[in-house]
């Protein structure tokens, strides 16, 4: 069962992929989530990296160290690059389906008293 932040990370990763970014790093996903949710703050360091770690352990994300030469050329610290796995995409699809079922159930319950 994914917590909301983990689901947000996976969904954002899918959106980034549609925009052509196959891989993402911690800061880029925090920034994308902030823009989507219209939040004022980026996700806290501990919360973000713990969620990324959990997603990796669950097999929904994979990660690799960036080529140190690229980071050196751009004079910045090396990034850890994450990719959403097929299992991650499946988990998002299942979560959406479950949310859809829940919404339909609530709608039905709301409608029932009116028709009775």
């Amino acid at each position: 069962m994914l917590i909301p932040l983990e689901l947000a990370i996976c969904e954002t990763a899918i959106k980034l992929r549609h925009r052509g970014a196959l891989e993402f790093h911690g800061y880029s996903i925090a920034k994308a989530i902030k823009h989507q949710s219209d939040a004022r703050l980026l996700t806290a360091y501990g919360t973000l990296y713990r969620a990324l770690d959990r997603l990796q352990k669950m097999g929904l994300l994979e990660s690799r160290r960036e080529d140190p030469q690229i980071a050196a050329d751009e004079s910045r610290p090396g990034r850890r690059l994450y990719t959403l796995t097929a299992a991650g995409e499946l988990a998002v699809a299942q979560a959406r389906k479950a949310a859809g079922t829940r919404t339909a159930g609530i709608r039905e319950r709301v409608k029932k008293p009116a028709t009775a």
């Binding site: 703050l41 980026l42 996700t43 806290a44 360091y45 501990g46 919360t47 973000l48 990296y49 713990r50 770690d53």
Partner: peptide, 20 residues
């Protein structure tokens, strides 16, 4: 301020991660 807020809001998660 942004760095410090992000840091302090994640303290509990950092500790939880260490325990995990």
């Amino acid at each position: 301020a942004h760095i410090l807020v992000r840091l302090s809001l994640g303290l509990v998660d950092d500790l939880s991660w260490r325990f995990e």
